[in-house]
Amino acid sequence: MSKPIEFKTGTLSAMSAIIRELDNVRLADTMHTMLGGLGEFFAGEATVIDLTQLTKAPERADWAGLLSLLRRYGLQPIAVRQAPEHLVESARKAGLAILSADAGRMSAERPVAAPTAPAPVAPAPEPAQASLDMPAPPTGTATMIIERPLRSGQQIYARGSDVVILGGVSNGAEIIADGSIHCYGPLRGRALAGAQGHTAARIITTCFAPELVSIAGVYRTFERGIAANLAGKPAHAVLRANAAGQQTLNIETLQLD
């Protein structure tokens, strides 16, 4: 007879929602702009509400509202990290696990997407030249190659590597890579390169028409349309430092012939 219960340790990949202002109305508004008002943006990832960077703690928190807001975008909030003392009790009542700043630090904080793509077949990429101020590029993992269009509702995550997609990314599909994203065919969905903070990652496509592009967390959405000189054209998205030394997301056309 097997035991009715067993305990094993394991690690769980989780998203961190780093919340700086605990104000649901503002959060709802910001998420709407960031995620293009797309319900179910995420795919049910376990999520830690991270309050380590909270600027000012409100007297009380509307946890129920916050949980429902996060769930609306397809996140599953499970815990809160470093909640201010006076909010701990209400968070616990709302069903959240309470984590201190370091305790329960999850092994990897990024979207957990089961790659539905075939196993990588390409040889490992040459290590890119990293300039000193950049996090090291992901190395050692062969480029992931996806030979079919990525369809609405599908999500692919190229962990620790670049991804090449032959056939395009539909509206409502999402492609995420720790390295760069190379899309041959129309890029109409969401593309997030440098998912672990690799700022030299790029998004390159033969036909630029995305809902969102993001490099190392710097993102842009296109609800109001894409500039005519870029729309449907070969283009790449790249982070470049501006005069003030800040990284800005630039989208530039590419001359392919």
Binding site: T116, R148, R151, G153, Q154, N171, G172, A173
Partner: peptide
């Protein structure tokens, strides 16, 4: 078209 795209993804998986 959106729904067809979605069903094509489901066919693939």
């Amino acid at each position: 078209i959106r729904d067809s795209d979605r069903i094509l993804g489901i066919l693939q998986s």
